[in-house]
Amino acid sequence: MLKGKHKNYQNLYTYMVKPSHPQLHQLEDEDFIGFWEEDGMGILFFHCQKEQLIDNLSKKYEFKIYDKQVIPYREWNENRFPKPIKVGKLTIAPVWVEGNWDLVFDPSVVFGEGQHPTTAMMLELGWELYTKFEKPEKVLDIGCGSGILTLFWAKLGANVTAIDLNPLCVKVTQHNLELNGLRNQAELKQGDILNLLPIEADLVLGNLYRLLLLKLFENEHFWKAKYYLLSGFSLDMEKELLEKISTLPLKILIRRTSQNWVCWLVKKLS
């Protein structure tokens, strides 16, 4: 995340390490962006080269360095450089872009800069739900990433429970809530959603990969809300997901596609 003298991102200096260590999430260095941890290994992100620090950390926490890279930030997240977006009456912008915005966010190095087709459709259909169907009071955001969906619903007045398996995503979401004075409208949880259900909500947000959606669809505790916004799957994957829910009392109110991706607004009928 951005802090201290750093007001935007230029290059990402990455160090892949193994084994991971929980203390790597807590580095206080001003040039530290974040630590992505997954499957026992992790990637440390910095704004500049940090060879001496990495060498010291490797000795302290007994990890090995498997890869080093310098990546221009404009090439990160499939070249989707964050920029201001408009959803309904709300404007959302990266924190480094000057202007009078309704929401600002620091995307850091996690998913959720607002321009991927799945995120864009989740925001668009969320606005349609809010303006045409119902204004949910409690929202569950599964896989919160940078927190852009959590910010959106908190700004609309909902109380949000935001969950992610990755600690960095939870940390970035918390930071972005604080940037907008919305921290009190969200509860943050780090962990596996399959172990955290049931969670009370009027609306569930799930911009997730196919296998996790399939597991959730089989879980009776997942189907406790009135509305669901679901995406993260392609046209080729849609048939399998439709078959999985075909016997459930659900109605797809809106189906939208963009660049081979699909998004559903689903209502539970009973």
Results as ranks from 00 to 15, higher is better:
K3D: 04
G4N: 12
N11G: 08
Y13R: 06
T14I: 04
K18L: 06
S20A: 15
H25T: 00
Q26G: 00
L27A: 02
D29P: 01
E30R: 07
E30Y: 09
D31K: 04
M41T: 14
M41I: 13
G42D: 00
I43S: 07
F46Y: 01
C48G: 11
Q49A: 06
K50Y: 10
Q52N: 15
L53C: 04
I54R: 01
D55V: 00
N56A: 15
L57W: 01
L57E: 06
E62R: 15
F63R: 04
I65W: 02
I65P: 02
Y66G: 09
D67S: 11
V70Y: 03
V70D: 07
P72D: 14
Y73Q: 08
E75P: 06
E75H: 14
N77S: 15
N79G: 04
K83C: 14
I85C: 06
K86S: 04
G88D: 09
I92R: 02
A93S: 14
P94N: 07
W96Y: 13
W96E: 09
E98C: 03
E98V: 08
G99D: 11
D102Q: 13
D102N: 15
V104F: 13
S108D: 12
S108E: 07
V109W: 11
V109Q: 04
V110L: 02
G112C: 03
G114Q: 02
Q115S: 14
H116W: 01
T118M: 08
M122E: 13
T131Y: 06
K132T: 12
K132E: 15
P136Y: 05
P136R: 08
E137R: 14
E137D: 09
L140E: 03
L140N: 08
D141K: 09
D141G: 04
G143D: 10
G145V: 03
I148R: 01
L151K: 05
L151I: 01
K155G: 02
G157L: 13
I163K: 00
I163F: 00
D164C: 05
N166S: 15
P167E: 00
C169E: 09
Q174I: 00
Q174P: 00
H175L: 05
H175T: 03
N176T: 08
N176Q: 04
E178D: 06
L182K: 01
N184W: 02
N184E: 11
N184I: 03
Q185E: 08
Q185I: 09
Q185G: 08
E187V: 14
K189C: 08
K189Y: 06
K189S: 06
D192Q: 13
I193M: 07
L197C: 11
L197P: 09
L197M: 07
P198D: 12
I199M: 12
D202G: 13
V204Q: 02
L205H: 03
N207D: 15
F217P: 00
E218S: 09
N219E: 13
N219F: 11
K224N: 05
K226F: 08
Y227T: 06
L229Y: 03
L229H: 01
E238W: 04
E238D: 02
E238P: 05
E240G: 13
L241S: 07
L241Y: 12
I254V: 15
R255W: 03
R256I: 06
S258Y: 11
N260D: 12
W261Q: 05
W261V: 05
W261A: 01
V262R: 07
